[in-house]
Design a binder for these strands. Structure first.
Length: 295
DNA sequence: CACCATGTTCCTTG
DNA sequence: CCAAGGAACATGGT
C-alpha cells in the first residue's frame, strides 16, 4: 500500500487515536518483522509505555513513546513495505490471519499486519539518517533536486526510487511524476535539462500532495478485520478503490490511451520494476541533431 | 502452472 | 567506491 502519501494519510489517521495511549501488553507473532531488536527487548521497552507522538519520515512511521515514569523517551520505526497495515481495532474483534505484532492498548488492539511480512518494526532510528530530503518540505528546492540529479548517470526513474535521493517515492508515483513532468524515464539523471529538473520538481510535489489530499478525503474505517478502508487498494474491485485508480495517469495503464494525447501507454522494465509511460508525452530525446552527411 | 505485485537489501559482476 | 542486474524475502491475485 504505501508510498509517502499513503503513509502520511495513515499517520494523520492514527495520530489522534494513538497519542496518550499506554501499552499494556504485546504479542509478537512473527519475529521476522522486527529488525534491530528482539521480541524480548520490544516487550521490555513497550510494556507500560505511552505514545507521545507520531510522525512520518519518507515511508517510515515514527512512533515516540516514553516509559511509565515519564522517563527514557524512545522511538520505534514502522515500515509497511508492500502489504503492511497498521490500525486499531476493538480487542474483541478477531485478529487477522497475518497479524505480526499486536499491542494491547486497553479497549483496543494496535495491530501491525502484513500478508507478506516484508514490513518492519525497528528500534534503530539510524535508518532515518540514510534518507534524502522530504519532497514536500521547504528545504527541498529545485536546486537541491538538481544537485542530487547531477551526480548520477542512472536512469531518472530508477534514481527516483533511491530513498537517499528523495525520501518517499515508490514505483507508482515515480512513473506518475515523470509523466506529469513530461520526462522520459530513461533519461540519464545527469542529462536532465534545467527545465526538465524544474518540471520534475514541481511534478513530484504535485503528485504527492494530490494523493495526500485525495486520500484524506476518503473515510478510513479500520474498525473490523473484515471491513476494508478502501483507500490503498487500487487493484481491488470496490468503487472507492476504482475511483482511486482513475486518478493514476500512467501506472498500471499499459495498452490504454493516454488521457492527454491518446497514444498507447507502454510498460517496460527498469531495474526489475515496471515503468509505465506515454511515448507521446515523454519522448526519448536521444541523439542530439545528428549531423547529416552530405555525400 | 505461469506471471505479476505499492519495498528493501544483499549479492555478484563489471 | 559506483553502477547495473538479479535474487531473495512470503503470500496472494489473476
Amino acid at each position: 500500500m504505501p508510498e509517502l502519501p499513503e503513509v502520511e494519510v495513515l499517520v494523520r489517521h492514527l495520530r489522534p487515536q494513538l497519542l496518550g495511549r499506554t501499552v499494556r501488553g504485546i504479542r509478537v507473532r512473527r519475529s521476522k518483522v522486527l529488525s534491530g531488536t528482539s521480541p524480548r527487548e520490544l516487550r521490555r521497552r513497550l510494556s507500560g509505555a505511552t505514545f507521545t507522538s507520531l510522525s512520518r519520515r519518507g515511508k517510515f512511521l515514527v512512533f515516540q513513546l516514553h516509559g511509565p515514569n515519564l522517563d527514557e523517551p524512545f522511538t520505534i520505526l514502522g515500515h509497511l513495505a508492500m502489504t503492511g497495515r497498521m490500525y486499531l481495532q476493538p480487542r474483541k474483534v478477531r485478529l487477522p490471519k497475518h497479524a505480526a505484532v499486536i499491542l494491547n492498548c486497553g479497549s483496543e488492539n494496535f495491530v501491525f499486519e502484513d500478508t507478506r511480512y516484508f514490513g518492519r518494526f525497528t528500534m534503530d532510528a539510524a535508518a532515518l539518517d540514510k534518507l534524502g530530503p522530504e519532497p514536500l518540505e521547504g528545504a527541498f528546492t529545485a536546486s537541491v533536486l538538481a544537485s542530487a540529479v547531477r551526480r548520477s548517470g542512472q536512469a531518472i526513474k530508477v534514481k527516483l526510487l533511491d530513498q537517499k535521493m528523495v525520501a518517499g517515492l515508490g514505483n507508482i508515483y515515480a512513473s506518475e511524476a515523470l509523466f506529469l513532468a513530461r520526462v522520459s524515464p530513461w533519461t540519464p539523471a545527469r542529462n536532465l535539462s534545467e527545465q526538465e529538473i524544474k518540471r520534475l520538481w514541481r511534478a513530484l510535489r504535485q503528485v504527492l500532495r494530490d494523493a495526500i489530499t485525495r486520500g484524506s478525503t476518503v473515510p478510513l474505517d479500520y474498525a473490523g478485520t473484515e471491513q476494508r478502508d478502501g483507500l490503498f487498494y487500487f487493484g481491488s474491485s470496490d468503487s472507492t478503490a476504482a475511483s482511486y485508480v482513475e486518478r493514476l495517469r500512467v501506472y498500471d495503464r499499459e495498452g490504454r490511451a493516454c488521457r492527454r494525447c491518446g497514444r498507447t501507454i507502454q510498460r517496460m522494465v527498469q531495474a526489475a520494476r515496471s515503468t509505465f509511460f506515454c511515448p507521446g508525452c515523454q519522448p526519448c530525446k536521444r541523439a542530439l541533431p545528428k549531423e547529416h552527411r552530405s555525400a
